[in-house]
Nucleic acid binder design. Structure first.
Lengths: 188, 188, 188, 188
DNA sequence: AATGAATGAGACTTCATTCAT
DNA sequence: AATGAATGAAGTCTCATTCAT
């Protein structure tokens, strides 16, 4: 709003981050109002750019949406890998998984909503399923640095299952449940 | 369009199942085009009723959507309970869970899509979360007829997790994975 | 709502006041939401009668509207005449006019709104102008029982003018203004 | 439809008066069919612009309506002030008031209808009462340039009252009535 | 006599996209 | 390179009225 940087005259031009800002704003709008509510107008307003920018920087709403979810899935995957890479032994790997569920999956309502919006798109459209397929692949690979193949898959399912229940179930959940689940799956 | 029964002229009146048909048509349209594509027009056409019928039978698109997902979640829950109730011992209960995943979760793409559309709504709107909360409750209760509390919860997570991966992951999956998963969780 | 009277079986039939009730409800709805908001549905609900009653008792919305404003204008005229008839000499006639302005014109916001809705219809449609013409005629005749022709017309204009300002002007008004106005006009 | 200027093909762009034209067309439609008949479609057609223009230039029908009546009330007020300002002494001020009633209030049926439509809105909605309050204020101020406070208020009421009777009363009126009325009120 | 069911027309509004500048 | 203006399509919803019962 306050015309930040831009040393030159008009305040126009020289806004190399504009495309990026639009993508971020798009994710914000989706988080708040869903894909259904993510219109050019609303995103432009959230990004603080003129409406005409939308179709100048993106060929259409579909391209914008796809780029937004690409960024989102990469961000989530990267954090997942980071957490798993920081673990050095079996014990800390288990703890890392617990932390992922507790803090990431159960943490931010924004991510919860964005994830499910993406899942829904992926359930129908190949272009988005490519995104989620890559995401799943990276998750599994990160888990397999510490667990054998079967454990990794079960852990993956556990993480996914708890993610669903976080969105779907109002019932209070026992915080220890997570620890127990991870322990039982990886106890072999 | 199909002018069912009604020997006389106008075809007006006498269509007591119309409300039901609209709800079913709504689910069909959602399955095919998503909640985003579920407009009055499209649903009316799918149901073979005039556009004006939509807001005669339902106060608005929200009410129709909510009723449609209510019916959907009840249908799924009922089938789940039925399958679990048919099991008589631990062995057949395990087999029932495997069948549920194989045939129901992995089976019908229509249900896959409808489930995720509902999950996305539930992630944002309490009215839909009430639906999914009830669904989860019934699933867990059905599982607890055969498994202890911890096993039931892990199985629940497994089913949920695999449901997600079915929607999200293009990668070929080993059919035995399911059997192994169920076995490991319930081996105690 | 509570099915009053009606000794017979079904609670249906035998509702000779229904037409009347609908007309009163129509005025209520107009007072609250304007002619624009006076739909069959809303009036039927306000009257506690089924929607089908509307076009059974009235040929259409126009007939209902006209009957409603007929009743309204008659009611106002009758009260006006009553007040003027109760005056016995010049002094009490002046007081009666002041009371009419103070209590009737300035009193009930419901009547204010209904009057102006009728005026607007009368400004365009002859059928309603017949109503207001009769109203004005009766007012003038009632005034002429106590005042000469010129005074009566000026008083009539004063009443009308203050009615307008009551609807249009947020500014605080001096209550004595009315007394002064009446006195000056009829001082001859 | 009339494709004004614009030598080139499409006729898009370059119509800086469009907003203004829509407002004028809105007043035309109201004059002809009332606020009730003033729909987007009808106004757009009257203005010769596509339907989509309506909500591009105005946030909604309410904004358009309010702007239209703002323009209308300003126009009327300005003419009133002009007429009163042109008077130089008491005699010509009296004549000015008579002219206002004869020519403006009793003259144009378009203004008659628009005034009463506005009054009806003002009777219910504060946003429109602000418009009429300002109008009344300006009228009174213009009158007080020539008459004392009490005379000005009575004249104001007289003008208002005759405006009502013009809309409401089919009866033939004595043209001299106006002169007599103004004379009696300002005779002191 | 009375009414619930039904419907076509039309209301307002939002939207993605195009285009002249 | 960038954008404000513009628009046609489509969305949801309300309505007066008709009709079979």
């Amino acid at each position: 709003m306050t015309e930040a940087a831009s040393g030159s005259r008009s305040g126009r031009k020289n806004d190399p981050d504009r495309r990026d800002r639009i993508i971020d704003a798009c994710l914000d709008v989706i988080a708040e109002s869903g894909v259904a509510g993510a219109s050019h107008r609303r995103i432009a307003e959230a990004a603080g750019v003129p409406l005409g920018s939308m179709t100048y920087h993106f060929s259409g709403i579909d391209e914008l949406l796809h780029e937004a979810f690409t960024r989102f899935s990469h961000t989530i995957s990267a954090r997942f890998e980071e957490r798993m890479a920081a673990a050095s032994d079996l014990e800390s790997a288990r703890a890392a998984v617990v932390d992922i569920i507790r803090e990431d999956v159960y943490g931010d309502p924004r991510e919860l909503v964005l994830s499910h919006e993406l899942f829904t798109l992926a359930a129908r459209k190949p272009a988005y399923r490519a995104l989620t397929t890559a995401w799943m692949l990276r998750s599994r690979a990160a888990l397999e640095r510490h667990f054998d193949r079967d454990d990794a898959r079960l852990l993956d399912a556990l993480i996914g299952g708890l993610s669903i229940h976080r969105a779907l179930d109002d019932e209070e959940r026992d915080p220890e449940e997570i620890v127990i689940g991870v322990a039982r799956i990886t106890s072999a």
